[in-house]
């Protein structure tokens, strides 16, 4: 059994003069929750489409579950949602699932009950799909992806359109699915989503792979807090000298410190020892665009 579940080699997709995916080479290890992170238009959905046989690559190759070019046998072992989940609007959620279960050659009403319960749709299972909110459609999409207990999940922006509590539930669910040993490829344009859910990440921009590696190595160092103190100059001196802090700088009328959010309370303890007191502290939201600017140069290569 191969340890790499998805492998792409120089995968390229061109639409006329637009290069949607450019020489993308990825390796997704078995059992990982793997994030495909990039801004809108980066080529994430096109990559998913190629892996699922919906989009024909212009050049390059890929293997899915050890099968070159994917194919139907591989697809039967995969659960996927691409873009907004699409179902028959006049059928109920349950009947939609029953249809796609039948397409897979299966008929198991207990599985439908279990999946509808899992995604929190049991109470609305018999309502027509067209009456569902976007969040409910996403949940049904997840249930559909889980039909047949697939060993690989491809989830394209699965929390798109959900309210914050729904997003949190789905992220918990994805983490649970990943902890069962399932391999998950999650595409997202949300830095914090990938950070919360994924073990590994590939960052793509303009169809090109910018960097691939463990989330802990690539994303978490970017966590920053912004703080104000009773004596910013002294605080900067203390923080710069501390081994606990990766970097600290004065920006505008505050300090920006690079440190994991969950460790930010240690800053207050550190400063208070020197009688510098924190008057204001907040996580600094780094936009994905800013993050890309930080890790990429003008030519799209990672700056070291």
């Amino acid at each position: 059994m191969t340890d790499t579940v998805i492998e792409t080699k120089a995968l390229t997709k061109r639409y006329g003069r637009v290069l949607a995916v450019d020489q993308l080479s990825l390796q997704v290890p078995r059992g990982h929750v793997f994030g495909l992170l990039g801004p809108n238009g980066a080529g994430k959905t096109t990559v998913m489409g190629m892996l699922l046989g919906l989009v024909r690559p212009t050049s390059g190759s890929f293997s899915l579950l050890g099968t070159n070019g994917g194919g139907r046998d591989a697809l039967r072992r995969i659960g996927a949602i691409v873009e907004t989940p699409a179902f028959y609007p006049y059928l109920s959620g349950r009947r939609n699932l029953a249809y796609f279960q039948g397409v897979m050659g299966r008929n198991d009403s207990r599985e439908l009950d279990r999946l509808l319960e899992l995604v929190g749709l049991a109470g609305r299972a018999n309502d027509a799909f067209k009456t569902y909110s976007l969040g409910m459609k996403q949940r049904l999409g997840l249930a559909y992806a889980l039909l047949g207990d697939p060993e690989l999940l491809l989830l394209d922006e699965p929390t798109n359109g959900m309210d914050p509590s729904g997003m949190a539930e789905v992220r918990d669910l994805i983490r649970d699915l990943g902890s069962e040993g399932r391999t998950i490829l999650l595409s997202s344009h949300l830095l914090n989503e990938v950070e919360q859910v994924c073990d590994s990440v590939a960052i793509i921009a303009k169809g090109r792979l910018v960097v691939q590696g463990d989330v802990a190595d690539l994303l978490r160092p970017q966590e920053q807090v912004r703080l104000r103190t009773t004596d910013d100059a002294k605080a900067l001196e203390i923080l710069t000298a501390s081994d606990e802090v990766e970097s600290a700088s004065a920006e505008d009328d505050a300090l920006v410190v690079t440190i994991a959010h969950e460790r930010s309370s240690e800053l207050t303890a550190l400063l208070s020892k020197s009688e510098v007191y924190v008057t204001e502290i907040a996580p600094l939201q780094v936009s994905l665009e800013q993050y890309f600017l930080d890790i990429t140069g003008e030519n799209g290569e990672r700056s070291e």
């Binding site: 699922l52 046989g53 139907r72 907004t84 989940p85 179902f87 796609f100 897979m104």
Partner: peptide, 14 residues
């Protein structure tokens, strides 16, 4: 139009 063709094909339906 509904996008259901994509949904069906991703389940391995030829």
């Amino acid at each position: 139009g509904w996008g259901t063709l994509r949904t069906a094909l991703t389940k391995g339906t030829g």
